[in-house]
Amino acid sequence: MFNRSFWRKLTLLLSSMMTMMAGAVVAPALPQMNRVFVEVPMADVLTRLIITLPALFIAFISPLAGYITDTFGRKKLLLFSLVIYFVGGTSGYYLDSLYLILVGRAVLGIAVAGIMTTVTTLIGDYYQGEERNAFMGMQGAFMGLGGVFFIFFSGILADINWQLPFTIYGFSVPVFVMALVFILEPRITSAGSQHAVSVTEYDKKTVFALYVIVFLAIVCFYMVPVQLPFLLSTMEGVNNTITGMTISISTLFGAIISMMYRRIKRRFSFKTIYMFAFLLMGIGFFAISYAQDYKFVMLSMIISGLGTGLLMPTGNLWLMKLAPESLRGRLIGRLSTSMFIGMFVSPLLVQPLVDRFEIGGAFFVGSIFLFLLTLVFFFWSLKESFQNDR
Rank of each mutant, 00 (worst) to 15 (best):
L145H: 08
T251Y: 02
L373S: 00
V212P: 05
E130V: 14
T314V: 14
G114A: 04
N133W: 06
M116G: 00
R105T: 03
M116R: 11
I84T: 09
G315C: 07
S190P: 09
I257Y: 03
L375I: 12
F37M: 02
M116D: 07
M33T: 02
R132T: 06
R187T: 12
Q163D: 08
G88V: 07
Y294V: 01
T246K: 10
V107M: 09
T11Y: 00
L232I: 05
L382C: 15
C220G: 12
I68V: 14
D159P: 15
L184C: 15
T246V: 15
A141D: 00
K265A: 06
K9F: 06
G309H: 06
F221Y: 13
F364E: 02
K9I: 04
F344H: 06
L184E: 15
A106C: 14
G170V: 08
Q128D: 12
L299F: 13
T234N: 15
T243C: 07
M178A: 09
L335G: 03
D96Q: 14
L10R: 13
S385R: 15
F86T: 13
T11S: 09
D389V: 14
F344V: 05
L331C: 08
L228M: 14
S97I: 03
G147Q: 06
H195W: 15
Y290W: 14
L216W: 10
V103R: 14
M17T: 13
F268D: 03
A287M: 13
L228E: 04
L349S: 11
K205M: 07
F182D: 01
L317P: 00
F171E: 03
A59G: 08
S346L: 03
P165S: 05
K204D: 00
E131D: 11
